[in-house]
């Protein structure tokens, strides 16, 4: 990867509830590119985004974002840096007590002193980009899951951040909306030069837009490279994940006792 890294994780060790999630993870995410982080459920993809955003601290190792070591930053400096970051949460995480319009306007109201008519124009432009300009007066409870995530996407780009992190942006989207979101992520990246980190299970969509991808499993990177390199990757684990095969080195079942023991067949 020749490009300068915007985000760099070096030997990150992180555990949660006694379980080692990352065990010496090292990842370089280039500036101005779309990087996809993929892997089976429970491998810590969302945790990785939270480490980059400074919401979690690693036990050891460093997380560099645009030259700042996130775990070592003071609270005020971290909040300053986050103004340059946008994050699309899996649940959308909209504020439930205000309308769609106010949700998208929130970062502008807090961080800028723009006049109301300019805020209105920006909010409507961002909502137009996600196809929800007409939904501006709805409350979050009135939106479907896919619409909620599109509003959240509009909110996460409203400040034109340098870095945007997408946590499962395609989940729950109908085919039309998914196409729009894929196109939007690509356009945002190319038009604004954003660094995009995409966490997703949707292999075809992710590989169709990313420049680089990492596949995580058991707290480590098991495959990395361009989409083309990954498709030709020699690892069975990587191929099993990319092709969605139930049988292979990555177990489908969570560790459990023998079936005979659980179903009481041993005594017969």
């Amino acid at each position: 990867m020749a490009e300068a890294a915007y985000i760099s994780l070096e030997n990150v060790v992180f555990s949660r509830a006694g379980r080692r999630v990352f065990d010496g993870l090292s990842v370089q995410i280039p500036r101005g590119k779309i990087t996809a982080i993929m892997g089976p459920s429970g491998t810590g993809k969302t945790t990785l985004l939270r480490l980059i955003g400074g919401q979690l601290k690693p036990e050891s190792g460093s997380v560099w974002v645009d030259g700042h070591n996130i775990p070592k930053l003071r609270r005020g400096a971290l909040f300053q840096l986050r103004k340059k970051m946008g994050m699309l949460f899996q649940s959308g995480a909209l504020f439930t007590d205000v309308s769609v319009y106010e949700n998208v306007a929130f970062p502008l109201r807090v961080h800028t002193k723009l006049p109301e008519d300019m805020i209105r124009d920006i909010v409507l432009m961002k909502l137009e980009a996600v196809g929800l300009r007409g939904a501006r007066d709805l409350m979050p409870a009135e939106l479907s899951g896919g619409m909620t995530r599109r509003v959240a996407l509009a909110r996460s780009i409203v400040l034109d951040p340098e870095l945007i992190m997408y946590d499962e942006p395609f989940a729950g989207q109908d085919p039309i909306a998914m196409g729009v979101v894929v196109k939007l992520i690509r356009q945002l990246n190319s038009a604004m030069g954003l660094t995009s980190v995409l966490v997703s299970h949707d292999v075809p969509e992710s590989l169709s837009i990313c420049h680089h991808a990492f596949i995580l499993s058991d707290g480590k990177v098991i495959g990395a490279g361009t989409p083309e390199q990954l498709r030709k990757h020699s690892s069975d684990k990587v191929q099993q994940f990319l092709q969605g095969k139930p049988d292979g080195p990555v177990p489908f079942h969570y560790p459990a006792p023998e079936r005979a023991v659980d179903f009481g067949l041993g005594a017969q």
């Binding site: 955003g53 300053q80 986050r82 949460f89 649940s91 995480a93 929130f106 970062p107």
Partner: peptide, 14 residues
């Protein structure tokens, strides 16, 4: 629980 506090943090709002 609905990640509203987390999203606020990520927007640079304490």
């Amino acid at each position: 629980a609905t990640e509203q506090l987390s999203s606020m943090e990520m927007m640079g709002v304490d």
